[in-house]
Write a protein that binds this DNA or RNA. Structure first.
Length: 891
DNA sequence: GGGATCACG
DNA sequence: ACGTACGTGATCCCG
């Protein structure tokens, strides 16, 4: 018969280990959970590996122990347990209770004494005993039935010691190990031992004499004058140290094995706690059913409306309050695809769903609803409302009072998340699990569309959504107020939704003929370059494959390897630039790369996105992607259309105004980020420079290079420009040296010179990093918040990244805030004045208005006015403007 | 689906 | 000694 197995754990030791091994994880309430999480990870692993019938976790009990009575200085000078860790003890004990795992503490004794007593008791009963700890002292407990597991670096690694393993490692028996500690002492417990005796000497002595007692009986034999002297001098201390180090094995415990028998955990209670602590990986191990049962149920009461009359009756009763709504579309493109219906919920009433038939039916039903959408007294609430507005615009319906969007609100609260779907938010803010579209429709080849789903299913689906949006509204708004972001939400992000929807709806006209012409031009160049490259390298290969190109360049042609990537040779432009002149093929490859990029991304990539009827592209402007508050653009990305090279800039010739009656007016902020820096740092010299309309890069050059202003060369100016960029990005000498291809020493000098000149900028950089360290986040001028957990990382690279982020985010983010305000004001003003001109694009510091030719002067003046006065800073904001028939022309 | 590359502010 | 500039998106290759 197999021996019964018991696992005994030193809870204090293991929780300490876990706490120090893991980064400071917190749940969303701010509760530190790292120690508990690490402990449980280990516990699960041990239970899994050893499958014990009996388990107990021992803790130290507060207050003095018998050791303190024997020796007042015991554990003196030890650092206080940090509060972040202290609060995790009751948390852990709570988990153990819910797991039905026994835990124990006993006044006057430490955890190791309890474990010692228990383990010896079990050993005499011939049980297999496994003791788990982070403390080597426990090795004295090892015997033929007792094994000791000691944590190694990395936490989940445990080293197992039985009698043999111990002897292999220390050449000592467990009993001798106590004496070793008596000789060596222990700094962390403030046990003195014999000064000058360390592990090596101690082991040597004990191998010969086996115990401290025996050493002193034979003290005359000891070789080594000094050692002998020390031993004699510290005789009492040695015996006392041994006594302190000896784990007590007769604590007066009332031991009943039945008490520590491992029982089944209370699943639902445990799940509740794991949910609170956000231990996702542990939750995943539970049965699906138990998880499901633990979830909060969501109201899905919904009435399907069958006719326009029914719809009309309901809509008629809506005059003020909250209107939560969501359209169902048969596809991805709300500007094109069929609208299947709409679900809505008025205040806390039940949900309604009504499906739309043909175009005529759709229009009629939307017309009935338009009185709600256009009623300023009714607060519109939804999730990703921009997509719904596209539908309304498509049917000529305006919308007022866009009050709350859970997508945007979720983003504002935590801008670094990947996504903010209702399912994710429901999971994050409530204990609710819901279906998303993928769960409903499937994915890949078997993906269904909504028109293959029964109307009852759709109605349930949408009712769930509406109810979750309603619940989210409450908690997200509370949080937003707590973060002081109400103004940002109400006056910037919510009004912006409609502006972005309109930009997307308006679109940007493409000159198809010009596009095709340019495509052919690029194609010819590519063909020629391909031939030349094959010729120069002596064989045909796929030039687009960095792997194949690497083989040609660095193996066949034996060019020097400048840089490697994870997967092989680096062949990027930086590397190729350094190889220029070493082989004729390099120049051709650089040209080839450039033209292929232009053609594949900006010609071929654009074509499928053009609406064939209108020749327009309708880029999607995304409000919830960037961590800094900028917006992003996709399908196509209109924020990275080439400009830096003439060849690339030609692409802009295909972006034209929609007809002869319109032109493009392009307005961009000059140096907005440096101006923001001047404002938030308050640096008088920087502020003055902008007030004086100074050439900022030239000015920086004269300061950084310590030359008279008249002696600034164009090379100096362009380098100073890089320094200014570096400052905004959260400067590092390494980054600057790479960018300018100069030594780090030199770049460090430039930076030092800069910061010497602009001492308040230097202060800002230091202050903001400290703020981020203290608060865990930084803010923009308008209270947009970004959490920077990286700044507390123990990894240098990660931490440095956090510091640069802390410096850059308030600058980039404030600039983003400012242009958002400008966009809202411009949009409103164009509308108020009933102008035909429309805002169609934003590129971070630049706006493009498709302007009616009769309105050009008016638009230019209102644009300039509204952009420059979007916000009052202690430096002026200035805007440059250009007009053209194409985007190429606006220069 | 991730890595490399390169387009923009 | 450590080794990266901040923020994005699209395309291509390749496992």
């Amino acid at each position: 018969m197999k021996n019964r197995k018991v696992v005994l754990i030193d809870g204090n030791s293991l929780l300490h280990r876990a706490y120090h091994a893991l980064p400071p994880l917190k749940n969303k309430e701010g509760l530190f959970t790292n120690g508990v999480y690490g402990f449980m990870t280990m516990l699960y692993k041990i239970l899994d590996d050893y499958k014990p019938e009996y388990v107990s976790v021992a803790f130290d009990k507060k207050g003095p122990t018998f050791r303190h009575e024997e020796y007042k200085e015991y554990k003196a000078g030890r650092k206080k347990t940090p509060d972040d860790l202290k609060m995790q003890f009751p948390m852990l004990k709570d988990i153990l209770d819910r797991m039905n795992i026994h835990w124990i503490e006993f006044a006057g004794y430490e955890a190791d004494d309890i474990v010692g007593t228990f383990s010896k008791h079990c050993s005499t009963k011939n049980m297999d005993v496994i003791v788990v700890t982070g403390d080597k002292d426990y090795l004295q407990l090892v015997d033929k039935n007792i094994k000791v597991l000691i944590t190694k670096k990395g936490m989940t690694n445990l080293e197992e010691y039985d009698e043999q393993a111990m002897f292999d490692r220390y050449s000592l028996t467990p009993d001798e190990f106590v004496d070793l500690k008596g000789l060596m002492g222990d700094k962390s417990d403030n046990i003195p031992g014999v000064p000058g005796v360390g592990e090596k000497t101690g082991i040597k002595l004990l191998k010969k004499y086996n115990s401290i007692e025996n050493i002193y009986e034979n003290i005359d034999e000891i070789s080594g004058k000094k050692l002998k002297e020390r031993l004699i001098e510290n005789r009492n201390q040695a015996f006392m140290s041994k006594m302190l180090a000896k784990i007590v094995t007769n604590v007066p415990l009332d031991i009943d094995l039945e008490d520590i028998k491992k029982e089944e955990p209370n699943q639902s209670e445990l799940l509740e706690l794991y949910t609170q602590f956000e231990f996702k990986s542990f939750i995943d191990k539970f049965d699906k059913e138990i998880i499901q049962d633990s979830k909060e149920k969501i109201d899905t009461e919904v009435e399907i409306l069958d006719s326009k009359d029914e719809l009309y009756k309901i809509v008629n009763g809506i005059d003020k309050g909250n209107f939560i709504f969501k359209f169902i579309v048969n596809g991805e493109n709300n500007l094109k695809d069929k609208i299947l219906g709409v679900g809505f919920k008025y205040n806390d009433d039940k949900s309604y769903y009504i499906s739309f038939g043909d175009e005529k039916d759709t229009k009629e039903k939307l017309n009935i609803l338009s009185s709600v959408f256009q009623n300023d007294k009714i607060a519109k609430i939804g999730h990703d409302i921009k997509e719904d507005i596209l539908i309304l615009f498509r049917y000529g319906i305006d919308i007022y009072n866009v009050f709350f969007d859970s997508l945007v609100a979720g983003y504002l609260l935590q801008a670094s998340q990947k996504e903010y779907s209702l399912k994710t938010l429901a999971d994050e803010y409530f204990n609710i699990s819901m279906q998303n579209e993928e769960d409903l429709l499937g994915k890949g080849r078997n993906k269904k569309s909504f028109d293959e789903i029964s109307i009852d299913t759709i109605a349930d689906f949408i009712a769930t959504k509406l109810n979750i949006i309603n619940k989210l509204k409450k908690v997200l708004l509370e949080k937003i107020e707590e973060y002081d972001m109400k103004d940002l939400l109400e006056n910037i992000e919510m009004p912006l939704i409609k502006v972005l929807a309109d930009m997307q709806y308006q679109g940007f006209k493409i000159d198809i003929e010009k596009l095709k012409e340019l495509g052919l031009e690029f194609e010819n160049q590519i063909n020629n370059l391909t031939e030349e490259i094959y010729d120069l390298s002596g064989e045909e290969f796929n030039i687009n494959s960095p792997k194949q190109l690497g083989v040609i360049l660095f193996e066949k042609l034996e060019l020097p390897v400048i840089k490697k990537t994870k997967t092989g040779y680096s062949t990027n432009a930086e590397v190729l630039d350094k190889l220029l002149g070493k082989h004729d093929v390099i120049e051709k490859i650089l040209q080839y790369r450039q033209i292929v990029k232009l053609k594949s991304t900006y010609i071929d990539g654009l074509i499928p996105l053009i609406n064939k009827d209108t020749n327009k592209v309708h880029s999607s402007f995304n409000q919830t992607i960037t961590t800094t508050g900028r917006i992003s653009s996709t399908n196509p990305n209109l924020q990275n259309i080439p400009i830096k090279t003439e060849e690339g800039r030609k692409i802009r010739k295909v972006f034209v105004s929609k007809d002869k009656e319109h032109k493009l007016v392009d307005a961009d902020y000059s140096q907005i980020e440096l101006r923001v820096l001047a404002h938030i740092s308050g640096d008088p010299k920087l502020i003055e420079a902008f007030e004086n309309k100074d050439d900022i890069h030239a000015k920086t050059a004269s300061e950084v290079f310590e030359v008279e202003r008249k002696d600034v060369t164009s090379l100096m100016r362009s380098r100073a420009k890089a320094v200014n960029f570096g400052i905004v990005y959260g400067i590092s000498d390494y980054g600057l040296s790479r960018d300018l291809n100069i030594s780090r020493k030199e770049s460090k000098k430039y930076i030092d010179n800069y910061l010497k000149n602009y001492s308040l900028v230097k202060n800002y950089m230091e202050d903001i990093v400290n703020i981020a360290k203290k608060d865990g986040y930084v803010k923009t001028l308008l209270n947009r918040r970004r959490f920077i957990p990286e700044i507390k990382s123990r990894n240098y690279n990660v931490r440095s990244f956090g510091e640069r982020t802390a410096m850059n985010t308030p600058i980039q983010g404030t600039a983003a805030d400012i242009i958002k305000i400008a966009m809202i004001n411009v949009y409103r003003e164009l509308k108020n004045r009933d102008l035909k001109s429309k805002l169609i694009l934003q590129i971070h510091d630049e706006l493009i208005i498709e302007t009616h030719i009769d309105e050009i002067e008016e638009v230019k003046s209102l644009l300039k006015e509204l952009m420059e006065n979007a916000i009052k800073l202690n430096v002026p904001l200035t805007v440059d403007m250009n007009v053209g028939n194409s985007w190429y022309g606006t220069k």
